[in-house]
């Protein structure tokens, strides 16, 4: 190995363990000196390359991950799913005060959240009248015409009561309509609200209808449409 090649090999990797490089250095003091010099420079380089790292970087990285996760989670949960939960909550409160025995509301709210979330994911297309009526049939009811832009129609359980849940897009914003069978053990207040949403209920011939929307929204138009267009079979 000539000197140039030796230098090339050492420059490329001062920590080389190649036997021909070691062999060449064995018999040549000049090459050995060069090698040692290069190793010393490498140690210095390592020191310089190891710049100081911001003290709190590790914590920041861990923090930003959980903060980001939370933001993504929030983003993924649209307000009307929160609304569905709040309806479940309101009905839970109603039923609880009526039955006068403890009901674990959080479980219902959570169950409904999960339902609504998967529902959103599974049905990206709007629902047509036939689909809504097919589901309404089990309440002995049907709509004579569409009541607006229904995006999701599916059964859900509000505190063990099987209900039909419609999520609608209206000029007043997203609204939820719940059709609940009339039962002696279910009590629904005429109107209810929490900090974000408000709802009103109507007693129809054989079902209760709840319309829930944004706190500031006007529910009357949707209520009006439903009472006009909902018919019950004899």
């Amino acid at each position: 190995m000539d000197e140039l090649e030796f230098r090339r090999r050492i420059y490329a990797d001062p920590n080389t363990t190649d036997s021909d490089v070691i062999e060449a250095a064995k018999n040549n003091e000049k090459l050995r000196a060069f090698w040692n010099e290069q190793k010393a420079l490498d140690n210095q380089l390592k020191q310089v390359l190891n710049v100081s790292v911001p003290d709190d970087l590790a914590h920041k990285l861990i923090w930003q991950q959980s903060a980001n996760d939370l933001a993504r989670h929030k983003h993924k949960t649209p307000w009307y799913i929160g609304l569905a939960a709040s309806v479940a909550f309101v009905m839970g409160v109603g039923v609880m005060s009526w039955v006068n025995k403890p009901v674990s509301l959080d479980v219902h709210a959570l169950a409904h959240m999960q339902y609504a979330q998967t529902e959103q994911a599974h049905s990206p297309l709007p629902v047509d009248l036939a689909q809504v009526n097919a589901k309404l049939a089990s309440f002995g009811a049907e709509f004579t015409g569409m009541i607006g832009d229904v995006q999701v129609a599916n059964y859900c359980h509000l505190n063990m009561v099987r209900s039909l849940h419609l999520i609608m897009d209206t000029p007043e914003g997203k609204m939820s309509v719940f059709i609940v069978p009339q039962r002696n053990d279910v009590d629904i207040p005429d109107s209810f609200s929490d900090t974000l949403y408000r709802g009103e209920s109507m007693r129809m011939q054989r079902a209760n209808v709840l319309v829930v929307g944004d706190k500031a929204s006007d529910l009357s138009e949707v209520k009006q449409l439903i009472s006009e267009r909902m018919q019950f079979s004899a």
Partner: peptide, 22 residues
């Protein structure tokens, strides 16, 4: 998953930062 991520951060953040710096 969280634990695994934190272990990853602790083990590699310094070297990865230095790499990014250079």
């Amino acid at each position: 998953k969280q634990k695994r991520y934190e272990a990853l951060v602790h083990a590699f953040h310094a070297d990865i930062y230095r790499y990014a710096y250079w």
